[in-house]
Write a protein that binds this DNA or RNA. Structure first.
Lengths: 188, 188
DNA sequence: TTTAAATTTAGACATGTGTAAAAATGCGTT
DNA sequence: AACGCATTTTTACACATGTCTAAATTTAAA
């Protein structure tokens, strides 16, 4: 991302960022990710291409920014208040709700993009990395033969596997059922 | 893949396929996947770009063909002779050996490409799908609350997670240790 | 309000991608 | 050797990507 999100941004910059991400969301609901061109994003958002490249490295960079917005709507970053033994459930719950709120978009996304296209793995990877970061903190005290980082990755993989099953591969399940699936897969 | 691999191919076609995949291997050892252009592949292999497009859809398609060659060197497809209870170990063992034989390439690949770039997930996905296909057959008799397809995916995820840890993230382990990691992660 | 600094914009350029159709080449068969 | 066929190569085209520059515009501070 070329634009520095940490510094406080001007109204103009916020408007621009919003226009680009809105355009991306709009196009994602219409066609496959590969068929979306930067020219098209610029046409819809009414900004010249040079402006796009002032903010983003490339198309993928904008996509990632879209997932960031997506995540910021959830409470996943408030995990510090949660008791350790519930952390996995908390993470699953938060991502579940974020995805549930964008169910429409995800359905379209799955429809237009083959299952393992870069876009599907893009959202999968984005949230998986969020989960790994949080879980790695949590596992610090535990002891096991397998390195903790690997365990954190494994838990996150499993959580995202079930969520992908539900929202991308379209097998509707309740949050409770999702948790039961995860627990069974993790042998708990 | 535009070229039909099932039909018996002419010497010329074999030569061409070989030239393209050799060029890809050569370039993968030198630079990041994103920096490899089809023009470059064609220059090295001494074929015009249109010929490339006679055989492959795009750069990713050639990459996938490279993993196919890679897999065909292993015995993974002889899994029918293996007792069911050993199938997981067998799959892990075969992919372990295939990767071990190409350790050099994988090391370079990890060096030039950021960890979750499309190329790393490309090889990950390729072998994961192989594993899923085999394991889905195997699990047919088992009974569980979680759908079998999901279980097969989970097992494959776990196997590939550990192999990626070893060969891509470069934590040298023996085949035996890899198996112990997988067993522990799967709660066995 | 004025002004200097920072950002945005327009357009050009080099490079890359993918398709289509015509021309050339190789290869087995007669 | 000549024919017919499939494959390979050439050529041309339309469009996308990413970088760069100078001019226009916006912003923040005096």
């Amino acid at each position: 991302m070329k634009y520095d999100l940490t510094k406080k941004s001007t109204k103009g910059a916020q408007r621009t960022l919003r226009a680009f991400s809105d355009a991306m969301y709009k196009l994602l609901a219409e066609k496959s990710y590969d068929d979306i061109s930067i020219n098209e994003i610029c046409k819809i958002s009414n900004f010249p291409r040079a402006t796009f490249y002032n903010y983003f490295e490339d198309k993928k960079d904008l996509l990632n920014y879209c997932w960031l917005l997506f995540k910021e709507e959830s409470n996943i970053e408030q995990y510090h208040d949660v008791a350790d033994e519930n952390l996995q459930e908390y993470i699953l719950g938060q991502i579940f709700e974020a995805m549930d709120q964008h169910r429409e978009l995800l359905t379209q996304l799955a429809k237009h993009n083959a299952n393992n296209s870069s876009i599907v793995s893009s959202i999968y990877e984005y949230f998986k990395n969020e989960a790994i970061t949080i879980l790695k903190q949590d596992l610090k005290n535990q002891t096991s033969k397998v390195p903790l980082e690997l365990v954190a990755k494994h838990y996150s993989n499993t959580i995202l596997l079930v969520l992908k099953w539900i929202f991308i591969e379209n097998h509707p399940l309740s949050k409770r059922e999702a948790m039961e699936y995860v627990d069974e897969l993790l042998g708990k």
